[in-house]
Every structure is written in structure tokens, then in C-alpha cells.
Measured scan of single mutants.
Amino acid sequence: TKKDTKLYCICKTPYDESKFYIGCDRCQNWYHGRCVGILQSEAELIDEYVCPQCQST
């Protein structure tokens, strides 16, 4: 049987260590910077990140 692979981001793909991720400070989920429109250089300046799903609630 195929091992359950945890899926990340709004694009629902397995973790890829070569890509940049940003963690939501509300739901603790991880998102590709590219998918949520945040560059790694911008993320370093953000104190708290809230993902699109949490922003809409």
C-alpha cells in the first residue's frame, strides 16, 4: 500500500525541500511562497504570516 504522504499548501503537493515555504501563524499549515505570493526575502521581514484561508475567516 502507498504510504500516506502529507500534502502541503493550497496546491496540495508533498513537501519539497528545494522549495521555499512559509508557515501560517494561525493554522500552522505550510504554504509555498510562490503559491501565496510571498518572496523569501519578504518573508524574512514579516513578523506574523496569516494564510489566505485564515484571512478569509
Rank of each mutant, 00 (worst) to 15 (best):
T1G: 09
D4W: 04
D4I: 08
D4C: 05
T5G: 08
K6P: 14
K6M: 13
L7P: 11
L7Y: 13
L7Q: 14
Y8R: 10
Y8F: 12
Y8P: 05
C9F: 01
C9N: 00
C9A: 01
C9M: 00
C9K: 02
I10G: 04
K12F: 06
T13K: 12
T13I: 04
P14N: 07
Y15D: 04
Y15V: 06
Y15Q: 02
D16R: 03
D16F: 02
D16S: 05
E17L: 08
E17F: 12
K19T: 06
K19V: 10
K19I: 10
F20I: 06
Y21K: 07
Y21Q: 05
I22S: 02
I22E: 00
G23Y: 12
C24A: 00
C24W: 00
C24T: 00
D25V: 12
D25I: 09
D25L: 13
R26L: 11
Q28V: 06
W30V: 15
W30N: 08
W30E: 07
W30D: 10
W30A: 15
W30G: 10
Y31E: 02
H32V: 02
H32E: 00
G33W: 04
G33I: 14
G33Y: 14
R34N: 15
R34L: 13
C35I: 02
C35N: 00
C35G: 00
V36G: 01
G37D: 04
G37A: 06
I38D: 04
I38L: 13
I38Q: 04
L39H: 04
L39I: 14
S41G: 10
S41W: 07
S41R: 14
S41I: 03
E42K: 11
E42D: 13
A43I: 14
A43R: 11
A43L: 09
E44R: 12
E44S: 12
E44D: 14
I46S: 10
I46A: 08
I46G: 06
I46K: 13
D47A: 13
E48F: 06
Y49I: 03
Y49A: 04
Y49H: 03
Y49G: 03
C51W: 00
P52I: 10
P52Y: 05
P52L: 09
Q53G: 14
C54T: 00
C54E: 02
Q55P: 10
Q55F: 04
T57F: 04
